[in-house]
Amino acid sequence: GKRLNIQLKKGTEGLGFSITSRDVTIGGSAPIYVKNILPRGAAIQDGRLKAGDRLIEVNGVDLVGKSQEEVVSLLRSTKMEGTVSLLVFRQED
């Protein structure tokens, strides 16, 4: 696979993607993946982020050990017109 650095500018329609966690172990944390890209928002305008990408970092914060809720609040904490920096891991087909 490969790592991608993606910067998304948060506009009025938001970042435009949803996340999910897979393989949750009890008391553990699961990897966070991009669930889908919404028809409006920064992600589809940028065009690089894809469903199935694994989020590794948000704005330089390592997501290991973070819950899905914590990751959502990290993403939401970005101000309007601010930039969210994502490091994602993509499995090659």
Rank of each mutant, 00 (worst) to 15 (best):
G1P: 03
G1V: 07
G1C: 09
G1I: 15
G1F: 15
G1S: 09
G1W: 06
G1M: 15
K2Q: 08
K2I: 09
K2T: 05
K2N: 15
R3K: 14
R3F: 12
R3N: 13
R3G: 08
L4I: 06
L4Y: 11
N5G: 07
N5Y: 13
N5P: 06
N5V: 14
I6G: 00
I6D: 00
Q7F: 12
Q7S: 14
L8K: 01
L8A: 02
L8P: 02
K9S: 14
G11E: 07
G11Q: 13
G11K: 06
T12N: 14
T12H: 11
E13C: 05
E13M: 09
E13D: 14
E13F: 15
E13G: 07
E13T: 08
E13R: 07
G14C: 02
G14S: 04
G14W: 00
G14T: 03
G14P: 06
G14V: 03
G14L: 02
L15S: 00
L15F: 09
G16R: 06
F17C: 03
F17R: 00
F17A: 00
F17N: 00
F17M: 03
S18L: 09
S18K: 06
S18H: 09
S18R: 08
S18F: 04
S18E: 15
I19Y: 00
I19M: 05
I19V: 12
I19C: 03
T20I: 07
T20F: 06
T20G: 09
T20M: 11
S21W: 08
S21H: 11
S21T: 10
S21D: 14
R22I: 11
R22Y: 09
R22S: 13
R22M: 08
D23P: 13
D23E: 08
V24Y: 14
V24H: 11
V24A: 13
V24R: 07
V24I: 14
T25R: 11
T25W: 04
T25I: 11
T25F: 10
I26E: 15
I26R: 10
I26C: 14
I26W: 06
G27S: 15
G28C: 06
G28N: 15
G28I: 15
G28L: 09
S29Y: 09
S29C: 13
S29L: 11
A30Q: 04
A30M: 07
A30G: 08
A30P: 15
P31V: 07
P31R: 08
P31M: 12
I32M: 08
I32F: 14
I32V: 10
I32P: 01
I32W: 05
I32L: 13
Y33D: 04
Y33W: 10
Y33G: 00
Y33Q: 06
V34D: 05
V34I: 09
K35I: 04
K35T: 11
K35Q: 07
K35V: 04
K35C: 09
K35M: 05
N36T: 14
N36K: 12
I37F: 02
I37D: 03
I37H: 00
I37N: 03
I37P: 02
I37L: 06
I37M: 01
L38T: 09
L38I: 05
L38W: 13
L38E: 13
L38M: 14
L38A: 12
L38Q: 13
L38C: 06
P39L: 05
P39I: 04
P39H: 07
P39A: 06
P39K: 11
P39Q: 07
P39E: 08
R40T: 13
G41Q: 02
G41I: 01
G41H: 02
G41N: 00
A43P: 02
A43K: 04
A43Y: 00
A43V: 00
I44F: 09
I44W: 07
I44Y: 15
I44N: 08
I44S: 14
Q45P: 02
Q45V: 12
Q45A: 12
D46I: 02
D46C: 02
D46G: 04
G47A: 05
G47D: 03
G47R: 05
G47T: 04
R48G: 06
R48A: 06
R48E: 04
R48Q: 07
R48C: 04
R48I: 05
R48L: 04
L49F: 01
L49I: 04
L49Y: 01
L49H: 01
K50N: 06
K50T: 05
K50S: 05
K50L: 07
K50M: 14
A51M: 15
A51P: 08
A51S: 09
A51F: 03
G52T: 01
G52Q: 03
D53K: 00
D53R: 01
D53H: 02
R54Y: 04
R54P: 00
R54L: 08
R54M: 09
L55N: 00
L55T: 00
L55A: 00
I56D: 08
I56K: 03
E57L: 06
E57N: 14
E57I: 04
E57T: 13
V58N: 04
N59K: 02
N59R: 02
N59G: 05
G60H: 06
G60V: 00
G60Q: 04
G60R: 04
V61E: 07
D62Y: 05
D62V: 10
D62H: 09
D62I: 05
L63S: 02
L63V: 09
V64R: 12
V64T: 13
V64M: 08
V64W: 05
K66D: 02
S67M: 08
S67L: 06
S67Q: 09
Q68D: 12
Q68S: 10
Q68N: 13
Q68T: 14
Q68V: 14
Q68E: 15
E69R: 15
E69Q: 13
E69K: 11
E70V: 07
E70F: 14
E70R: 05
E70Y: 10
V71W: 00
V71T: 08
V71P: 02
V71R: 01
V71D: 01
V72W: 09
V72Y: 08
V72A: 15
V72F: 07
V72D: 14
S73Q: 11
S73L: 09
S73F: 11
S73I: 08
S73N: 09
L74F: 06
L74D: 04
L75E: 04
L75S: 00
R76G: 09
R76A: 15
S77R: 12
S77F: 12
S77P: 06
T78L: 12
T78S: 09
T78R: 06
T78M: 08
T78W: 05
K79W: 11
K79Y: 14
M80F: 11
M80G: 13
M80L: 14
M80Y: 09
E81K: 12
E81V: 05
E81F: 14
E81T: 10
E81W: 12
E81P: 10
E81I: 04
G82S: 13
G82C: 12
T83E: 09
V84H: 02
V84L: 10
V84K: 00
V84N: 03
V84C: 08
S85W: 06
S85F: 08
S85K: 09
S85L: 05
S85G: 06
S85M: 08
L86N: 00
L86C: 01
L86F: 05
L86V: 04
L86A: 01
L87D: 15
L87E: 11
L87N: 14
V88T: 02
V88K: 02
V88N: 02
F89Y: 13
F89G: 15
F89P: 02
F89E: 15
F89Q: 13
R90N: 02
R90M: 01
Q91F: 07
Q91V: 15
E92N: 15
D93M: 10
D93T: 08
D93E: 08
D93H: 11
